[in-house]
Design a protein around this nucleic acid. Structure first.
Lengths: 334, 334
DNA sequence: CTGAAAGCGCTAACAC
DNA sequence: GTGTTAGCGCTTTCAG
């Protein structure tokens, strides 16, 4: 609570007996500064407890050391893990992540991005490829590296890092059919707003029909993906179609709930019903019954995206426009 | 990729035919501006696609609209939910959250906080009360609202929002003993760095001994709390002490793993072994077997902390020094 | 109600 | 190597 005004570069310079510029250069580890100046300045800075002012730095240098991250939400561990990967990748780089959540609402997304741009971030990491035109224009006009993450099915504004959800859905269907399943049901949450879950479902459905198959029953709900919802959806799914031998779900949270229901009601998994989710979350991989899933590299996606922004700073947008593809890895868990 | 330099306030002012100052005032919805000026300026801003520059705004007004959030990590859903609560609480306020992760490392925490302070944030939200003196000094000297969250057992620098982990541990022990359990085991992760888990364990242990009881077996591991670790710890715990009738865990992740092991190996829960966790995570509440837990209001804690910072901006630190107490709510789930 | 002048704290671009 | 001069884009302050 000491209200003494914070020390500025001028204070450091005065204490060290050099000019502001020399102090600035010394503190930033610039090249052309004499050993003795560096020592004096660093000592002065430490003595005064100088902290520096990123606002002024950024305004004057036109580069902000801020990375904007826009995700749908953080109640789902998936996006938290993406953030975690970003944080890990930029640790020690002097960058700071700023985040905003959209709740899958395109208008909020637009506002959040707009707001972030006003901080002159060094780069932006945005979830998904399905932004409306207006948002895409905003991103394109920003003239900073923009990395769209998680998805690959679409047209990126600039760089993108992710995987094909359509392919992931198709691959899972293929694997399940190959393992002998024929009577499919589907349980999912939030399909209306979650375009990636929809893409997976589309890929899955198309593959089924290519094999002359179709879902025998489908239960969806427009709420957050939770294990509770998964339990409830599975209950009504099996009530309607007790002869299912495989349940595909919108993601691992729903799949876990599905497994919970089966365990609680004595349905043998995977003998009678095979459950398939998406993501490969830790708490699902360790379930007492095996659940098929697609492993997604959440932290790696975040880290890669951050790395693209980090490296594209140091020159003429070297990494801009890159497209980093992760291949969905299916695990039946059998 | 249009590299046209972004429009500035001067451009808006010129287009609207007023001075920069009037434009600034109009855009901020200041009081003393004529209706017609406001309209002209707003139209001009919209036409040009003016976005504003928070860096310049903040530098010149000395208030940054940035809220710094420091958490141990984001791989655990608990802190992600705290962030989520913060994001929800500040939505629409013009504030932006900046976050940093510490991995429970006090030195990293110091660096992260220092770095954040250089952005002149309007406030800081920091996890826990157990910072080393040097960090406390840094926080106190910052002269902005600082809210320490999650914990209550200790001496806050300024405001704090959380619950007593010692009391939570004690209350859980009390409840479990009252329900008839006597043969206790403990399984926990990361106790060395997680001071709050240690406080819970201390409260639990003290209560046990007040009743003439003690843990018959204890298994710990210095890794992240995961269901996988919980499963493994429980397995070796029950191998060593097969007659346990209650397993207390460091948190819900471990508790879930504990439940998974019991389900997989046919140990009746809760008849033979009662499992107790901490947090009340969604995926644990819906488990096919009941698990006792302490409900913690993660989102509310984040939201309250954000609210304290939001309100303390508008005057002479009105809310500073506040202490918001949440009472641990035990649920045996029986 | 409006405007002109003077910075916020720092760095880019030149001198020396 | 080091210092000087101008700003970055906005708001504060103080005159009108």
């Amino acid at each position: 609570m000491t209200t003494a005004k914070r020390a500025t570069l001028a204070d450091v310079a005065a204490a060290a007996g050099v000019s502001k510029m020399t102090a600035s250069r010394a503190l930033r580890g610039a090249s052309d500064v004499s050993r003795s100046s560096i020592d004096k300045v660093q000592k002065a800075a430490r003595d005064i407890g100088y902290v520096g002012n990123h606002l002024a730095m950024s305004l004057s240098s036109r580069r902000s050391n801020l990375i904007g991250v826009v995700v749908p939400g953080l109640t789902n561990i998936v996006f938290a893990e993406v953030l975690s990967g970003i944080a890990a990748a930029i640790a020690g780089s002097g960058m700071q992540p700023v985040f905003g959540t959209t709740d899958y609402d395109p208008e909020r997304e637009y506002d959040v991005i707009r707001n972030m741009l006003s901080w002159n971030p060094s780069g932006l990491i945005v979830t998904g490829l399905d932004q409306p035109q207006e948002t895409r224009r905003l991103l394109a006009a920003a003239d900073i590296p923009v990395v769209q993450i998680m998805d690959l099915d679409g047209d990126p504004v600039d760089a993108c890092v992710g995987l094909s959800h359509h392919a992931a859905g198709a691959a899972m269907a293929e694997a399940l059919i190959r393992s002998g399943r024929r009577a499919f049901g589907y349980a999912g949450c939030g399909l209306e707003r979650d375009t990636r879950a929809r893409k997976r479902l589309a890929g899955f459905t198309e593959t089924l029909s290519r094999h002359g198959l179709a879902f025998r029953a489908t239960k969806t709900r427009e709420t957050l993906s939770t294990t509770g919802a998964g339990r409830a959806l599975t209950k009504s799914l099996l009530a309607e179609a007790p002869d299912l031998d495989c349940i595909y779900t919108s993601n691992d949270d729903v799949a876990a709930g599905c497994a919970y229901h089966c365990i609680a009601s004595g349905v043998p998994v995977p003998e009678q019903v095979l459950i398939a989710g998406f993501n490969g979350l830790e708490f699902v991989e360790n379930l007492p019954v095996p659940v098929a899933t697609t492993i997604t590299p959440r932290r790696e996606i975040g880290a890669e995206a951050a790395r693209i922004i980090l490296t594209s700073g140091g020159g003429d947008d070297r990494e801009t426009g890159r497209r980093i593809t992760f291949t969905p890895k299916i695990e039946l868990g059998l």
